[in-house]
Each structure stands twice: as C-alpha cells, then as structure tokens.
C-alpha cells in the first residue's frame, strides 16, 4: 500500500514541478497547490498506513491509526489554504496592475 501511495505522491510531485516551471502565473499557483496535496499524502504515508480504528477512544479498538500525522496535515492544510488564497489575490492584483500573467514579462529589475 505504501508503495502505491509513494508512486501517486511521486506523480503529483512531477506534475506540480512541471506546472511551477511554466510561464503562466495561474499554472504556477495550481502547481503549488498540487505540491501541497502531494506533501500531505506523503505525511500520511510516512507514518505507515497500518490498519486500525480511527483515533477515537470511543471506538474501543485494539489498535488505532497514528493520530499525529493527521494533526500535522490538518495544520498544514489550513496554512497552505491561507497562503494559496493570498497568492491568488496577489496574482489578481498583479494582473490588474501589470496587465500580464506571463512570468517572462515580469522579469527585469531596472526601474519599472
């Protein structure tokens, strides 16, 4: 099971990196959100996908799944949600002001 997840995470990493290297700003943002999806899956996978009850004490099970990565992922989802929404608004503002979403045209540091 971990192997399948690793392959899936690898494919997501690949697609994310490809999108980040393109010229369009929106694709870059999509790439970053794919990367965060992938890393959340990686966190889940790295804690071993052993069988067990959901981490609720009411379940009365003999084995539970690891609750720590779930908490880490939850924290990270919220953070990446905040960052992504900021990034989208930034891209929108930049498009309004600079009239382009092409990263090639956002080059240059001499004046404006």
């Amino acid at each position: 099971m971990e192997l399948m997840m690793s392959i899936a995470v690898g494919i997501l990493f690949m697609v994310g990196v490809y999108l980040i290297l393109t010229r369009s700003l929106l694709r870059i943002i999509l790439g970053t959100s794919l990367l965060t999806h992938a890393v959340h899956l990686l966190l889940l996978t790295m804690a071993r996908l052993k069988k067990g009850a959901p981490p609720l004490l009411g379940e009365q099970a003999s084995a539970y799944t690891d609750p720590v990565p779930a908490a880490l992922i939850l924290t990270s989802i919220v953070i990446s949600f905040g960052v992504t929404s900021f990034f989208f608004v930034l891209a929108y503002k930049a498009y309004q002001k600079l009239k382009t979403d092409d990263m090639e045209q956002l080059r240059g540091d001499e004046g404006e």
Partner: peptide, 17 residues
C-alpha cells in the same frame, strides 16, 4: 517561499517516518 515551505514539510515527513 511556498516552495521552500513545501520542502520543509517533505523533510519533516521523512524525518517523522
């Protein structure tokens, strides 16, 4: 910085694993 935070999470995941 989004990218470097992503790397940070990857590293944390590996270390925790």
């Amino acid at each position: 910085n989004v990218l470097s935070s992503w790397f940070f999470l990857v590293a944390i995941a590996y270390l925790y694993g």
